[in-house]
Simulated scan of single mutants.
Amino acid sequence: MADEAPLHSNNPIRFGIVGCAEVARKLARAMCLAPGVTLCAIGSRSIEKAEKFAALIGLSGTQVKLYGSYDQVLDDPCVDAVYLPLPTSLHTQWAVKAAHKKKHLLLEKPAALNVAELDRILEACQSNGVQFMDGTMWLHHPRTLKMKNLLSDSKTFGPINYIHSTSTMSVNPEFLETNIRVRPDLDALGALGDLGWYCIGAILWAKDYQLPSTVQALPDVTTNSAGVILSFTASFHWGISSNNSTATIHCSFFANSSMDLAISGSNASIHTKDFIIPYQEDWASFELSCGAQFADLHIGWNVIPEEVRVDCELPQEASMVKEFSRLVHGIARDGVQPNSKWPEISRKTQLVLDAVKKSIDRGCKLVQL
């Protein structure tokens, strides 16, 4: 059959979605927008759920294959890659299965409940020659690259001294009772996994993925009756070899929506208030302040932060799908090895997340990395 032909530059990467979580609607749209990609299969726990999801995204069974089980998606020879947005407790089981079926894996964050589980996933991907990437969309926005270029300019920005990041949302009582993100059997990491993944990833990104030497949760942790984390704050420190940098993060299900990332160097600072999900799809901005000082008599500042605007051709989730598919094309077409950058980023994020969890479990004690 024509749709079973080997991949080459003229063949789109054929995606299957395993699980019909709400976020999968966003990724299904991204697959329709990204060049060189097609959505060819949707699998849920029942055919009725798959049909309902397809209707929500404007597709029918004549446009995409609909399956009443996850295994059927993985067994479909026409599926090259899978997007897996299942609850975190199910990631290891189904991600390992997908890798063994030679399906390239785009895995929703948090990648796993702990680094031991993630290592099982990454080993399965490596041994089967498939590409792994977690679903951290903001890393693929052109604004992120623009900020990284500024951070890398040591003359303009100087050594990084301090990083602060927040990810908060104010939820309703129903969320706290029924949402999978507060259920220990589905997403036992709660706010640490759902929101903390972004903030931990952001401070590591700013530090070029150099792990901090120490991690400590602050004693303001809130959990539910099942012990799932609902709100927390943590601090991170890098030693003298990394300019004695410090970072703090705050994540909560009880505060007004925030997605702040502020990075201070010796000569400049950048600040964005929407780093996870930009206010607009087609552009995003951040504030850049260079050489800021107080004015005479401390009645103001000598400079006003500059707004740096970055336009984008695709929404960030479509850019992520495009980049993932480019890597898959290279493996299939040119025989290159899977790119190791993305699994390494995920593993370091998971390591630091585990350290925060260990600190919380030990009564907010200092944890050495």
Rank of each mutant, 00 (worst) to 15 (best):
A2N: 14
P6K: 14
L7Y: 08
S9I: 13
G16Q: 07
C20L: 01
C20E: 02
E22L: 10
M31K: 12
C32F: 08
C32M: 13
G36N: 11
V37H: 01
L39S: 07
A41G: 04
R45K: 08
S46N: 08
A54T: 00
A55R: 08
L59K: 15
T62Q: 12
L66C: 04
S69N: 09
S69M: 04
Q72M: 14
Q72E: 15
P77S: 06
C78F: 03
D80K: 05
S89R: 06
H91N: 13
T92V: 13
Q93W: 03
A95D: 01
A99R: 08
K102A: 13
L107N: 05
L107I: 01
K109Y: 04
L113E: 07
I121H: 06
C125R: 05
Q131T: 07
M133F: 04
G135H: 05
H141I: 03
T144F: 00
K146W: 00
K148W: 07
G158V: 03
Y162V: 00
I163V: 15
H164Y: 11
M169P: 00
F175P: 09
F175L: 02
R183E: 03
L192F: 02
D194V: 06
Y198W: 13
C199W: 01
I200A: 05
I203D: 01
I203E: 07
K207T: 07
K207H: 07
S213H: 12
V215L: 07
Q216R: 15
P219G: 04
P219I: 01
T223K: 15
T223W: 02
N224C: 09
H237L: 11
H237T: 12
W238L: 05
W238G: 05
S242L: 10
N243S: 11
N244Y: 06
T246C: 10
T248A: 14
T248R: 14
I249F: 08
C251A: 02
C251P: 05
C251N: 10
S258E: 09
A262M: 09
A262F: 10
A262H: 11
S266V: 14
S269W: 03
H271K: 09
H271W: 11
P278W: 01
W283P: 03
F286M: 09
E287Q: 15
L288M: 04
W301L: 15
E306R: 15
R309Y: 01
P315T: 08
Q316D: 04
V321F: 03
F324K: 08
S325F: 03
V328K: 06
H329L: 13
H329T: 10
A332P: 00
A332G: 14
I345Q: 14
L351Q: 13
V352G: 00
V352D: 00
D361N: 15
